[in-house]
Design a protein around this nucleic acid. Structure first.
Lengths: 246, 246
DNA sequence: AAGGGACACGAACACTGTTCTACGACAGAA
DNA sequence: TTCTGTCGTAGAACAGTGTTCGTGTCCCTT
């Protein structure tokens, strides 16, 4: 009846966890006037930090400070920073809505799930770094994979192709979100106004030596499109390449 | 005639740098019996460290220790750790062989370049993390993009699709290599013999609750294939999706 | 021979994740 | 009521990290 964080983590990799009853008030030496530290409280404040300051600002000390305590207090509820990352990704994946498979519109459905993932990742900048590192055996991430697999199979995609395609799609969504987050961070850092807009980029491409003929020639195409356009293009590329129904 | 590291870095983003003449012997207080510290020496030892111990072991102190000096000595040649990362992936990209575009076999040529990148990334485990974070304006990475763009254009791919496809391909190769490196590291760490082979994985999939019907049903497909198979599948998916010649 | 500039280096600062140890308040038992 | 034990809390500390400052030492030029 006293689940250590290690046990909780092990359970997370085997079965859906039942919610643990939270104690009423904090019991420690600081008196009972503060809210107790729970895993949910840690996850919530962690999400807030990442949303406002980015994933690189997510440190154990930062979370602890936001909870008015020291860093060591967190280790009674969380195994690791790696464990905290996994919890964050798990909760993020748990919020993804998986549609009922419809064989006539499975391509749009897949694209919709990918867009959901992308938007969640971009809402918490840099968190996709944790998503790439997270173990694929996590039950919440596996739930999303299961949902995508179901969509592909309903679309008549060959099981082997469907299995590999889910992997490829989630991997690309992760990488894409991470790259966008990193670029945004770089822009924020180098320039307060972060307006290194398309014109500047195209001029830099045009100023390249002649060793880069195609890059100079097609600078417009290389810098074209909004963030969503590039994303939709690649997802479409992968989905349309799958032989399936319709 | 006294290029600070910052100037060197700026030059790296504008023109191909000419090789700087290396001094003969180290001049510092430690006497002249040691090799001088050059950017090339730093890059070389850094590659050695990553190759043997992985990217997470690549710290400024580790590089400095391998060169028999202190960490601060590196900052006369390198702006940052971020700068060092950029130098590494620049040199890695410089070693990629770009074939002469052949309109009849452009798909194989693209796949070949991607495989080259993958093999280089996997040779230095975890270095793709630096590749994702690296600025795309680096001249060496741009050279690879230029080469891939040339191949796609020679294949008759629409310029807009070709531009976006190069981006998608490099991004996927990076992410794939990073994921493989991370999984290998996890396996190395949890188990000395790192034989959590396919049977174990399939049993864990089979032990899932019934909420994951497709994952249980197609556990074989999900765990099938060697590392190269999954990679080739996705690259083929993206390349074959591109409308072009042949 | 004297000066100057470039290079190298040791120590230190502000961080990070993590662990050890003690403290204090609540629960139940006598 | 008093005592005892457990459990969550928290402070201090350890081994790391990237980075900077000031000093020292050498070689080359004048």
């Amino acid at each position: 009846m006293s689940p250590t964080p290690q046990e909780r983590r092990a359970a997370r990799h085997q079965l859906g966890g039942a919610s643990t009853g939270a104690p009423a008030a904090r019991r420690g030496p600081s008196g009972g006037n503060k809210k107790p530290i729970t895993v949910d409280a840690i996850i919530g404040t962690a999400f807030g930090i990442v949303e406002n300051e980015g994933y690189e600002a997510l440190t154990m000390r930062r979370v602890a400070a936001a909870l008015d305590t020291g860093p060591s207090s967190l280790y009674a509820h969380v195994v690791n920073k790696e464990d905290l990352d996994e919890l964050l990704i798990g909760r993020l994946c748990a919020g993804i809505e998986l549609p009922e498979p419809d064989p006539t519109s499975w391509r749009q459905q897949i694209a919709g799930v990918c867009a959901q993932l992308r938007d969640q990742y971009l809402r918490y900048p840099g968190i996709s770094q944790a998503a790439i590192a997270a173990a694929p055996s996590n039950l919440d991430t596996l739930r999303v994979s299961e949902g995508m697999l179901a969509l592909l199979l309903a679309g008549g995609v060959d099981p082997q192709a469907a299995a590999w395609a889910t992997d490829a799609l989630t991997l690309y969504v992760n990488a894409y979100s991470l790259e966008v987050s990193l670029v945004n961070r770089r822009l924020d850092r180098t320039d307060g106004g972060w307006v290194v807009s398309r014109d500047e980029l195209m001029r830099r491409f045009a100023a390249l030596p002649d060793t880069y003929p195609h890059t100079k020639r097609y600078a417009a195409e290389l810098t074209a499109g909004t963030v969503h356009d590039r994303f939709d293009f690649t997802i479409g590329l992968m989905v349309d390449g799958l032989p399936g129904a319709r």
